[in-house]
Design a binder for these strands. Structure first.
Length: 592
RNA sequence: GCUUGGGUAGCUCAGUUGGAUAGAGCAGCAGUUUCCUAAACUGUUGGUCGCGGGUUCGACUCCCGCCUCGAGCACCA
């Protein structure tokens, strides 16, 4: 049983006996460094019942604690209404023993009997390569999935690939018209980049046509509708829907190119999926569900045949769910897809990782599913995140002004290489090992930089200045890990059981207390779907450890027992670093 | 206009269910390598927590109003 729970129980019973307070909220927090003690209880909420001054109330509770659990509490002090409780040193040492002997400390093995959580992320379009926005999406989604797994949940990772629609036809058409038979094979270009190039080409040619039509006196609106290229693209979409063999063959060929490119990008990013959905298979889903809802009276039909839901009683608007001609809109297939997912996988809940520009869409979607009577609608979550801003302005993939995912990763790895070579600590490593290390560091920097920020926030990304390898960064944490591994190598084989030493250095106590918190950090971060909480936790731990490392001798400690203990403590910090970073998909190196 | 998310140091960000003197990194300044990896450590400069009210023993945190930046308000996805 952990200390906090013991303390809370005891405090509750004291409050009951002395002041007749039932079910009191006992807030225990870590005592601030400026004060003596380990855990602090706020007694303000109890003064009304105790009818005593805060100081006296705190003193009374403190004395009762000493009397009741003298093996846990060894002292206390009172500052105003704050009761600072001192925990017995033995207990702190026990905490360390427990952590040290726990395999995969902080993680809980998934419960096989529980239903899984499905996490959807990435969801790319097959007309262009992945960009910076996708990187935030992928890292967040993947990391939340890992975090949930660490917290003991079963997880199914999925993506829905938007492989159909007018935007896909645009790049197909442009390739057909201007492509000259270019392929990834004959150009050596990555498939998704090649296709993306033609998406940009389409937009250029389309704009030119619009300008020409406007020159002839047509309004901008009409010009956009009547430009020959857009008409052709629409024709192509129709042909695709009618399964025209030629269009389908072109579509499949170009999509295959794109998937080849995505595969590489995903591998570099270190993300993966258990199940892929393709919009070309799901875009007709949902119509039956709409009809059912129509019968139930959830939806209503207008005179023109279109189907709507009135959400104004819920403070939202009226929303179209089926067009007058019976064809679907976006939300129709989302309704159908969600229902089929719960059916097919018998999942408990579903998390959508999608940018915050779709907040409203998901609010509406979840509400519709609830009104259709699905109990699980309460367990649908939109993992919403803010845009990534650039100093130069907005990214526009149509115009090709994006930070490409592959380019960015190249930059990061190159920077890692430059810094590593300058520092020159890697003698004796093969060039292959070095490459994999540069990759680990560059990707670690990128992932940590993005994940440490609260998802809700927009974030500024300045490719030149933002990425730092010093301070609160991935490489800072990786570096600490590498130093710990070096110490372990020099020490040799460590005893499996944690050794006991007489007195702990205050820094050691703090580090142990921090380590002991790790499991609850994982649980809280998973519940909040926030990798940022893990990032901040591990940063604090590392900072504390580095200060300890710099000021306390380890291998050169005089007492053999103390030496072993310090290396074991370091080892434990390393294990926590590794497990924490793993939830963010970040690897840690043996040396750097 | 309505809905929604931000606004904390020069910059990028933390800040737990309201708690003690609001914290980090970067940048700036000043230091630390005969010693376990200096991608580190130590010290220091820098704040009207957007503004104004309210609730409370206590407010960056909760409530109301305002200012400001962004996003969403399609028979697009």
């Amino acid at each position: 049983m952990d200390i906090q729970a013991t303390l809370k129980d005891t405090i509750s019973s004291i409050l009951k006996e002395k002041y007749a307070i039932e079910d009191a909220k006992t807030d225990l927090s870590a005592t601030r460094a400026e004060f003596a003690g380990d855990l602090t209880l706020l007694v303000f909420p109890f003064v009304r019942a105790s009818k005593k001054k805060p100081e006296d109330t705190a003193k009374e509770i403190g004395e009762a604690l000493l009397e009741k659990i003298p093996d846990v509490v060894c002292g206390f002090n009172v500052v105003k209404g704050f009761l600072n409780i001192e925990i017995s040193k033995n207990i702190i040492a026990d905490e360390f023993d427990k952590a040290y002997s726990t395999e995969m400390f902080g993680y809980i093995a998934p419960n096989k009997d529980e239903k899984a959580i499905m996490v959807e992320y990435s969801s790319p379009n097959t007309n262009k390569p992945l960009h910076l926005g996708h990187i935030r999406n992928n890292l967040l989604g993947y990391s939340v999935a890992r975090l949930l797994e660490a917290s003991g949940k079963k997880v199914i990772k999925t993506q829905i690939i938007n492989d159909r629609g007018i935007h896909i036809c645009k790049s197909m058409l442009a390739w057909k018209l201007f492509g000259n038979g270019e392929t990834p094979e004959n150009t050596g270009e990555k498939g998704d980049h090649l296709v993306g190039k033609y998406y940009v080409e389409f937009d250029k040619a389309y704009k030119k046509e619009i300008d020409e039509l406007k020159g002839k006196g047509m309004s901008e609106e009409d010009a956009k509708k009547n430009a020959p290229l857009i008409i052709q693209a629409q024709k192509m979409l129709k042909a695709w829907e009618e399964k025209d063999p030629e269009v389908r063959a072109l579509w499949e060929m170009m999509n295959t190119w794109v998937y080849g490119g995505f595969k590489q990008t995903y591998e570099r990013l270190g993300v993966a999926f258990d199940k892929n959905y393709y919009e070309s298979n799901t875009y007709l889903l949902g119509k039956d569900n709409v009809n059912e809802g129509l019968e139930k009276g959830v939806f209503y039909r207008r005179a023109d045949g279109s189907v709507w839901i009135d959400l104004t009683p819920d403070g939202l608007d009226e929303k179209l769910v089926l067009r007058g001609d019976g064809t679907s809109v976006y939300i129709t297939q989302d309704i159908g897809t969600a229902i089929s997912r719960f059916k097919e996988f018998n999942i408990d809940s579903l998390i959508y990782t999608v940018g915050n520009e779709q907040d409203y869409h998901f609010k509406v979607l979840f509400l519709i599913l609830k009104k259709l009577g699905y109990q699980w609608a309460d367990r649908l979550y939109h993992l919403s995140y803010g845009m990534v801003d650039l100093p130069t302005g907005k990214m526009k993939s149509r115009e090709g002004t994006v930070v490409d995912a592959d380019d960015l990763m190249d930059d990061m790895v190159r920077t890692a290489r430059e810094i590593s070579e300058e520092l020159g600590k890697l003698d004796g490593m093969s060039s292959q090992e070095k490459d994999s290390l540069y990759n680990m560091i560059g990707m670690g920097a990128l992932k940590y930089f993005i994940l440490k920020v609260d998802p809700k926030k927009r974030m500024m990304f300045n490719p030149k200045e933002s990425i730092d390898f010093n301070g609160n960064t991935g490489p800072f944490i990786q570096y600490t890990y590498a130093r710990i591994q070096s110490i372990k190598r020099k020490y040799g084989d460590l005893p499996k059981e944690a050794v006991k030493i007489g007195t702990l250095d205050p820094r050691e106590e703090n580090i142990i207390k921090n380590i002991a918190n790790f499991p609850s950090v994982i649980q809280k971060a998973a519940a909040a779907q926030s990798p940022a909480q893990v990032a901040n936790y591990v940063y604090d731990l590392v900072k504390e450890y580095n200060s300890y490392y710099q000021n306390v001798p380890m291998l050169s400690a005089e007492d053999e027992n103390v030496k072993t203990f310090r290396v074991q403590l370091s080892d434990m910090v390393g294990r926590v670093i590794k497990n924490a970073m793993a939830t963010m998909g970040i690897d840690v190196p043996e040396r750097m």
